[in-house]
Write a protein that binds this DNA or RNA. Sequence first.
DNA 1: CAGCATCCGCTTTGATACTG
DNA 2: CAGTATCAAAGCGGATGCTG
Lengths: 208, 208
Amino acid sequence: MRSYGQYCGLARALDIVGERWTLLIVRELLMGPRRYTDLHQGLPGIATNLLATRLADLEEAGLLAREDAPPPVATTLYRLTPRGEELRPVIEALGRWARPLMAQGIKGDAFRAEWLTLPAQLYLADREPDRAATVIEVRTGDQPVVIEARDGAIRTRMGSAEDADAVITARPDIALALLLGRIDLPTARARGLKLEGNQRALRRFKPA
Amino acid sequence: MRSYGQYCGLARALDIVGERWTLLIVRELLMGPRRYTDLHQGLPGIATNLLATRLADLEEAGLLAREDAPPPVATTLYRLTPRGEELRPVIEALGRWARPLMAQGIKGDAFRAEWLTLPAQLYLADREPDRAATVIEVRTGDQPVVIEARDGAIRTRMGSAEDADAVITARPDIALALLLGRIDLPTARARGLKLEGNQRALRRFKPA
DNA sequence: CAGCATCCGCTTTGATACTG
DNA sequence: CAGTATCAAAGCGGATGCTG
């Protein structure tokens, strides 16, 4: 554990969460407790030994705790402690700063549908908070995601929606550009996006 | 420039500002334009070649720009671009998260008076916004700092105050603990703190 | 002296293989 | 499934040298 050796809040924070991969591990755990294998799959590119040492460091720093999963599965789960959860505003601030970076397209980068949660929460707002909920399903590759506008808030969850108002199938950067109004529907379609259901559902979402 | 290669805002942000020392350089520049030598002194422990490459990376990423200082000095200044300034909320979020870490005392860490700016802004509030300004000078070692409560806001600046209501001379962790109300004045005095002037001036400040 | 670039020993990281 | 072991490559810290 190398330290900056400075009596400065930023430096001490970075002593704990500033190493490579650490905040990305926290990102994964902010979506709920995970098994080692889940984390490894959610962090493409990380070496397994690094993941193991980071988890040990985070546990020692009091940001996460191991726990035994309930009987049927009987494995180890990693869960953020309250102190670890307190990093959410940090990750949100970085996520907001990153908005222009997401507009640059996916290039050759890896992508997991779970990662849509962050931009959906940070970049989208509900244009019509007083109307009944609008639900869309987004299919970008590995897993479908449900994005829902309800009561002025945006919620996301993994999985399919029986009652989706619309279903988008597209590359993640195209889907995001459409939802954020950076491109219009014809342009998105020209870039391979498929839309089923009621296309008016999209208007429910506006850039935050 | 190593990349995580993930289409995720957090990962892309960390591709740019996640390397060692980078956010600490931004911390320095958030306090105003600096010369190379100022930066080197404000970042105890950084290797000079690392500072040079980080500055080049930050310039290429559009977060800072070099400029020539006005005639009398005639040197190069490094200044954050607007995009670089937008990192302020990120550093503030990390600074807030670090609050318990600052309570752990200075241990053997290096300290610069300028670093008091962050905790003063983030951890202190004005208890009596309607009264005339209260000004205190804090002497912690290298340079004096002025902390001022005025109109409900906390301001800091480097230097001395002619008209200070009180002057504190102490180790930075002791001064901070006193201002934040974590220890009382007798305890602080027992730990070597000296207070001149009106000790009621301290009551103007409360923990944020 | 300010502003780097170069070199060297050490630490961290990444890729892969292996184990209970 | 959940890691540990191994080793090469990259990154870092410190010292020193170069250039205006």
